[in-house]
C-alpha cells in the first residue's frame, strides 16, 4: 500500500481487510469452575494473540518499523486490543460478553472466578458506553489501529507511521469527541493484574505467546 496516495476510504478498507478471523473456543459441557473458566479465557487469548500479530502486520506502516519497535508497540497494547475486540463483539448484546461465538458469558457467570466479576462489570459498562455513543464499525477499526500505533510509552519515529496517523485523522474527525472517549475508556490495568494474579496463584497455567506477553508486562512494571 502506497501511503502517499491512499485515501482515507482506502485506508479504512485496508483496516477492514486486516481484521482477524473469529476465534472459536468451545464452552465446556459442565458448569464453569474457576479453573475451567480461566482455562477457556486464556486459551482464547493465546489464539487471539497469534491472529493479532497477523493483524498488526497488515496495519499500514507497522512492518516498516524496526522489529524492536514492533515488539514494543504490541507489548504495550495487546490487552487493550483484546478488550476492544470483545467490546465490539458484545455491543449488540446487553448484559453479555461475547468472548467468542461459542463462548458467550453472562455477567453473573463471572462470580465463579475470584475478582473477575469486577472486570466483567467494567467491560459491560464500557460496552454500554460504546452502544450509547453508537460506535460504528469503521470507527472501531480506526480506534483499534490507533491503540496499536499510539501504544508505546516511547516515541516511535517513522515517516510511514506518521503517514498512518495522518490517514486515521479524516475518518476520525467526523466524530472526534466520541472517538476520544472510546480511547479513554479502554484501559487494561485491571485485566492484566487479574491475569497475573491467576497465574501466580496457579489457578491456570499460562503458556506460549500469552506467557511471553504477560511476562513482558511484569518486567516493564519492574
Amino acid at each position: 500500500i502506497l501511503l502517499s496516495t491512499v485515501s482515507p476510504e482506502q485506508f479504512v478498507l485496508t483496516l477492514l481487510e486486516a481484521e482477524p478471523p473469529n476465534v472459536l473456543v468451545s464452552r465446556p459441557s459442565k458448569p464453569f469452575t474457576e479453573a475451567s473458566m480461566m482455562m477457556s479465557l486464556t486459551k482464547l487469548a493465546d489464539k487471539e494473540l497469534v491472529h493479532m500479530i497477523g493483524w498488526a502486520k497488515k496495519i499500514p506502516g507497522f512492518v516498516d518499523l524496526s522489529l524492536y519497535d514492533q515488539v514494543r508497540l504490541l507489548e504495550s497494547c495487546w490487552m487493550e486490543v483484546l478488550m476492544i475486540g470483545l467490546m465490539w463483539r458484545s455491543i449488540d448484546h446487553p448484559g453479555k460478553l461475547i468472548f467468542a461465538p461459542d463462548l458467550v458469558l453472562d455477567r453473573d457467570e463471572g462470580k465463579c472466578v475470584e475478582g473477575i466479576l469486577e472486570i466483567f462489570d467494567m467491560l459491560l459498562a464500557m460496552t454500554s458506553r460504546f452502544r450509547e455513543l453508537k460506535l460504528q464499525h469503521k470507527e472501531y477499526l480506526c480506534v483499534k489501529a490507533m491503540i496499536l500505533l499510539n501504544s508505546s510509552e516511547y516515541a516511535v519515529a517513522s515517516d510511514r507511521l506518521s503517514r498512518s496517523h495522518d490517514c486515521l485523522v479524516p475518518p476520525c474527525a467526523v466524530r472526534p469527541g466520541p472517538l476520544t472517549c472510546f480511547l479513554f475508556f479502554v484501559h487494561s490495568n485491571k485485566g492484566m493484574e487479574h491475569l497475573l494474579s491467576m497465574k501466580c496463584k496457579n489457578v491456570v497455567p499460562v503458556y506460549d505467546l500469552l506467557l511471553e506477553m504477560l511476562n513482558a508486562h511484569t518486567l516493564r512494571g519492574q
Partner: peptide
Amino acid sequence: SSLTERHKILHRLLQEGSPSDIT
C-alpha cells in the same frame, strides 16, 4: 532480559509466519 530473549514466539511470528502457518 532483551526483547529478543523474552519474545521468542512473538519474534518468530513477526519475522516469519502468517497466523495460518502457525496455528
